[in-house]
Structure formats: structure tokens, C-alpha cells
Design a protein around this nucleic acid. Structure first.
Lengths: 250, 250
DNA sequence: GGAGTTTTGGTCATTACGACCAATACCTTA
DNA sequence: TAAGGTATTGGTCGTAATGACCAAAACTCC
């Protein structure tokens, strides 16, 4: 906290009115994969300021809940999905002018979901949509407040998290193919990975993926039907694939 | 932001009193190196609650400043050192009961200083001291509020930052020896690194350290006087030394 | 001058990894 | 049913990275 003996303000006076009051909100950047392209969930604001402008979902923190609980609640309210496992805080934002109405400090959370499409469709009142993050990062879409910066930080956090934790499988269903897993890495890092080498890295050490015995149906373009796997227990330690400064694609 | 169309509360009503008010503080975890041991700067609280208990320095954010500016200001007020370059936000904390007086959300910042010793000595009013982080992490020292958790997160952040950024040279002076640089890695990661291999990794690619032409005086235990170096330009990209899961020491 | 300590340089085996090629297995179309 | 296409799967190989270990160099202290 909070108050040190050297602070210039008065001594033991705990009158809240003597200290600046802030509204604290929680904003959730929801990332998901649609056809091997990284998407972010945006909602269209229904009121001023920034009425009609796209924004990331969020809401006020309640005094009786923690920040994590607030983020989890907002996620459920927005998508109906209870994905508490994949919810990481990545930053706080409190620039003086970021909200024209009042002093607001917001805490950004990153959530990774699979197949959020149907959930979004069921979302009634809000105009919600999944848009490619590339459209956001390259500023083809206007965002409210400082949400562009927030999404930038969230995506960067996702890139790092992909390397050090098991965030990759969170984008996928309970069973998946090696190619689907590789598509996650390629989409988030913006690189092209060799299919054979990627496979070797994943299967080389065991604990990452476990063959489930079945085969998936090949895509519409034919090809050999791939083996199906499920996530192993090693994902929460550290990721199996690491970025290299070379072979950049994007 | 803040407010989405699906939020359950009322529509365009921007009366601040309708939303829960929080105090927002900034707490700074100041890490430094004392004789190859990682230390954290703590202050002894002069008022209730937690009067006389050790805590990390911090203070209230002002509505006219950003979070980064608040952290920088607190750092200057506490240590007199203007080390704005090495100041990274690592987390926000807002559990309901974390401050018994009122609703406080705090944002944690990590600051890395070199040779903060004299600065601390000059700090008058506050009882300030540098304590080994090991004493804190192993709970040999009681801390106020949730500051133990905050320091835990800060140290973990420092460990990661050491790998991906040039945080290492921030612990050292303008010129340093390879052994001093290695000591930083060994202290923060709690590992033992081979001196020869470390040297090769640092000097192998250029851009990390630049020989300054002079030699340092050997330590009290004698030995060959080491070459002096200064930090190169490559440190802000990514770190030269990476952790390996093996050879753990601590 | 010798012992001790630290830096600095060298060798070597192992591993990791990217580039590339080829075989396999299935679908689609003719 | 046969041929072509596509994606998966397996293999080889050269290079880079790295850890273990040894030894020489340089200086201080006794």
C-alpha cells in the first residue's frame, strides 16, 4: 500500500474524502481463433461517450469482489462462458484523460476462449462481434478510450504467454490435431513454422500432448487425416515451442 | 473502459456517486544488489494500521498524473533517485479486505536501482532499510497488508525481465566487470553459472558489453584484475542469457 | 618468492533446431 | 476404378548453442 511515514500529506487521518476518489473498472480482452485467424471480441457502445464506437467489454469493480472476480464476472456476463482458468491480468491504465467523465483506473485482463462464436451470437442487447486483431492493431477500426493501447498490450502478453505457459491449448477444443495447434502459434506470433519440425518439438518430450487414438476428418481440401490429441499435464509449467528472432513472417 | 451496453446498471448517468469509489495507490518494489545479494527496500510504518510493521513504499495516485508518473514520483520521494528508465508495472491488487480502512486498489511497480545504500541512509523521517529478499520470501519478516504477495510477484517479474530485457545492467554502475554481471544473474535466478561459459555468451555476440579499456582493482581476496565494461545498445531488445530448467541451485 | 584467488581462454561432447526431402494416407474428380 | 492433389508423418543433415571441464594468465597477500 499506500501510505508511508514520509508521505507529505497529513498523519493518521483516514477520512476517505481527503484522498482522490477513483472509479475502478475491469476490461477484458477476449481472444479467440476463427479459421486460424486471431480475433478479439468487441462490443459497440450504446451510450455517450464514444456512442456507437467499438470497445472491449468491461465494467465497474464492486467493493465486495476482487479484481480477478470482477474480471471473471464480466466475462460471464458478456459471453456466458465460465473460463476462469485462462484469465490473466496484464496491466492497469490510469492516465488522467482516459475517460472524459471522471477519474477512472481500469485493470486489463486477457481471456482466451475457444469457439466463442455461438456465444457471441446469443448475446442479445449488445452489438458484439469478433474482429481480426490485425484490423485493430493496424487501426482499421476505431476504438473508444485507450482501448487500442490496451489491446496492443493484451496481444503482446498473449505472445509472451504462449511461450512460457500453456495458453495454446486454451484456443482449442478438448481434442485437436498437431496442425491446429501449430496454427495457434502461427496466428499469434505471425510466423510460419515448419510442420515437421513443429511436430517433432511437440512429440519429442512427452507430457505435452497425448494421442487419443482417433483420427480427425481431413479438411475440405483433402489430405491425410491427422491424429487427434488431447492436452497433457506439462502445459502449465512452460511452453514447448519458443520464438526465434529469425523467420519472421508478419 | 468501463461501461458496456449490457451492463446491468442504469443508462447514461454519469453521476460519480452512483459508482463505488476507490482510493488508488501506487506501491514500488525497489530491488538492489548488496554484496551479490538481492535486497528490497522496506520502510517501517509510522501509523496504524500495521504501525511499526515493514512495508514497501507507496502513496496515493493523484488525478492529474498517470500511474507511471505516480510511481516515478513515489520513487523520487522515497529514495531521491530518478530512475525512470527501470520502472515496470507488474500487477494490480484490489482484494476487498486488503486495506482495513477503505477500498484501496494498488498498482505495483518494480524499480531496479544500483547502490541505493547511501540514498537510504540519507532518508530521514522514515525508518527505511534494505533487507535480503530471501528473508522476505521465506517469511522471516512480517509485512503489512498484502505486501508479501506483491513482493513475490515483483521478484518473479524481475526473474522474467532478466531473461527478456536488459534489466541486469540496471543493477550495476556505469562500468562493471563480467563477474559482477554474472553475480546479478546468479542472485536473481538463484543459480550457479559457469564463469567461462557466461563470459562467452556475453562477449560472443557484440552489442551487449563494450570494453572500456581499464581494469578494475581486484577484490579483497586477490585474483587477476578484471576488465571493465559498459552496457551496449542491445540490452533493450532481449537478454543474452537464458534460464535452463537444469542446474538449479536454490 | 610462493601460495592462493580470480579472470580469461580453450577444447569437447551433447543437444537443439531449422532447412529440406520423401513417404504415407486420404479425398476428390475424372 | 484410377489419377491427381493435399496434408500428415517420418527422416536426414548441417549448424548453432550450450554445458562440463581443464588450463593458463595475472594479480595480491604472506
Amino acid at each position: 500500500m499506500t501510505k508511508t511515514p514520509r508521505d507529505s500529506r497529513g498523519p493518521a487521518d483516514y477520512d476517505l474524502s481527503r484522498f482522490p476518489a477513483f472509479a475502478v473498472t475491469v476490461d477484458v480482452v477476449i481472444l479467440t481463433m476463427v479459421e486460424s485467424v486471431l480475433h478479439v471480441l468487441l462490443v459497440q457502445r450504446g451510450e455517450a461517450p464514444f456512442k456507437g464506437v467499438w470497445a472491449i467489454p468491461g465494467g465497474f469493480k464492486r467493493p465486495t469482489e476482487s479484481l480477478d472476480e470482477a474480471a471473471k464476472r464480466e466475462l460471464v456476463e458478456e459471453t456466458g462462458v465460465d473460463a476462469a482458468r485462462l484469465l490473466a491480468q496484464f496491466g492497469a491504465y490510469g492516465d488522467p484523460g482516459r475517460d472524459p467523465r471522471m477519474n477512472v483506473v481500469t485493470v486489463g485482463y486477457l481471456a482466451v476462449l475457444r469457439d466463442v462464436g455461438s456465444v457471441v451470437a446469443g448475446s442479445d442487447a449488445a452489438q458484439a462481434d469478433l474482429v481480426p486483431v490485425a484490423d485493430v492493431l493496424e487501426e482499421r477500426i476505431d476504438l473508444a478510450f485507450d482501448h487500442l493501447m490496451i489491446i496492443r498490450d493484451a496481444v503482446e502478453r498473449a505472445r509472451v504467454e504462449l511461450e512460457v505457459s500453456g495458453i495454446a491449448t486454451a484456443f482449442l477444443g478438448p481434442t485437436f490435431t498437431i496442425a491446429e495447434l501449430r496454427a495457434v502459434y502461427e496466428a499469434i506470433w505471425g510466423v510460419q513454422l515448419d510442420a515437421a519440425n513443429f511436430r517433432r518439438s511437440i512429440l519429442g518430450e512427452d507430457g505435452w500432448v497425448i494421442p487419443v487414438g482417433r483420427r480427425a476428418r481431413p479438411g475440405s481440401s483433402g489430405g491425410r487425416p491427422p491424429e487427434l490429441y488431447r492436452a497433457g499435464r506439462a502445459w502449465r509449467q512452460s511452453g514447448p515451442i519458443h520464438r526465434t528472432p529469425t523467420e519472421e513472417r508478419n
